[in-house]
Design a binder for these strands. Sequence first.
DNA 1: AAAAGCCCCTGGATGC
DNA 2: TGCATCCAGGGGCTTT
Length: 272
Amino acid sequence: MPELPEVEATRLSFARRITGAHISALRLGKALRWPLGCADSALLGHTVTGVRRRSKYLLLDLHPNGLLLLHLGMSGSLSFSAAPAAPGAHDHFDLITSRGVLRLNDPRRFGAVVWVAHEQAPMARKLLGGLGPEPLEPGFEVEAFYRALRQRRAAIKQVLLAGEVVVGVGNIYASESLFEAGIRPSRRAERISRAEAQRLHTAIRAVLQRALDSGGSTLRNFSNAHGQAGEFQLQAQVYDRAGLPCLRCASPIKLLRQGQRSSFYCPHCQPR
DNA sequence: AAAAGCCCCTGGATGC
DNA sequence: TGCATCCAGGGGCTTT
């Protein structure tokens, strides 16, 4: 589940509390996507000086050096509490600090916790290097967005997911944004008109902001670091609504398979 | 260079 | 109830 709104909601729920905390220990459970990248003991005595987000990654800045890259994968969530329970079967990482324990729970283990010395380190460049602009920041500009789409022949839905033209838009919010912009997910990106690109640009920002305001979406078990679930799924217009009436025109919502992922759209509100 | 497929892993829902 | 099958929010890597 974790797309930009969920990752940002997670960040907001613990960034202030963990900033200034001293790391006293690490606990590693089963292997995540990649190895940590340093000895467990290398981080002891470090201080967390801030928590940033880039795309769907969280970046914990450490003093005196380095940063931790955290990714929630498909099923990850973080908790931060002063007195956590004994680790469960899916608790694969604990960062034990003077202010509490930051814990990653991730049943599918597609998530990651990676230490890098700095953002130009090879692993950091591999993970963060090719990422497109942040949709909620000024660097996401309509004209550049339109021109980038012109260069892609793939379906617009898949171009949005690829993270090169814009980041943070996953399967739920791609479908929702395309509905709001009135564009069918199967349209080739290069065929999107300037007016449509404008609508899509606006829709992506609006949908993500609305989701963020709702604390993200909780489909199965997502929660922020306070343990609070999101509520955006309750206002989804098309996602996971195959066969149900469109909330705008009552046509049955359709399900489409694109690159092993589900897309949902309204055949009437999203023509062609 | 871009696009399409494959795969990592576990759990929940569904169907027989 | 038990078991098999399918599906799931991401994204890096390999192959076309």
